[in-house]
């Protein structure tokens, strides 16, 4: 499955070193992170030394080199969000899930990330949860959001 996926990402980009970032973007989008194996494949297929693939993958913030949790909660800490209390939201996430931004909970359910701005600054503070936007956030709203995601997960598990 993952290989066919990778094939279609690499298609028409093979042996084009300058396509490295675009390829990594697509992998990140579809796999959620970039594994060592994928880096090796990309290195071979694009003709970029593995060391360069690694340095690009680790330089850019868009790329995660570790698998991320099932739910990714991204807290905007841009200036507009900062002056309207983004720190409170980070504190809430931190205390509720016991992980700092960039980390994933032990059970693999949640990853907390921060981002410099998602461009919805007028509606600050902003949090995105698995890609969907939540505006005018506060600690209480985040607490409820995390709880609702947790109970959704337990429901799904009991249905298995």
């Amino acid at each position: 499955m993952q290989n066919t996926n990778l094939d279609s990402i690499l298609e028409s980009r093979r042996s084009q070193p300058h396509q490295l970032i675009e390829v990594l973007q697509d992998i990140q989008e579809q796999h959620g992170y970039i594994s060592e194996e994928t880096m090796a494949t990309v290195s071979e297929e694009l003709g970029v030394p593995l060391m360069d693939v690694y340095s690009v993958a680790s330089f850019y913030k868009s790329f995660s080199l570790k698998p991320r949790g099932k739910n990714v909660i991204t807290i905007c800490t841009g200036t507009a969000c900062h002056v309207r209390g983004a720190k409170l939201i980070v504190n809430q996430a931190n205390a509720q899930l016991d992980v700092a931004p960039g980390e994933t909970t032990d059970d693999g359910q949640f990853t907390i990330e921060h981002v410099n701005c998602v461009g919805a600054c007028a509606l600050a503070p902003v949090v995105t949860e698995n890609g969907s936007y939540h505006h005018h956030m506060d600690s209480g709203k985040l607490r409820k959001l995390i709880k609702s995601l947790e109970s959704k997960d337990t429901e799904e598990n009991s249905n298995d």
């Binding site: 300058h18 868009s62 790329f63």
Partner: peptide
């Protein structure tokens, strides 16, 4: 790739070259 410095002209061009 989410790097602020890539808004700078020469860094942006390096990034476009895949670096």
């Amino acid at each position: 790739g989410g790097a602020f410095v890539c808004g700078e002209s020469t860094a942006l061009m390096a990034s476009l070259e895949g670096k």
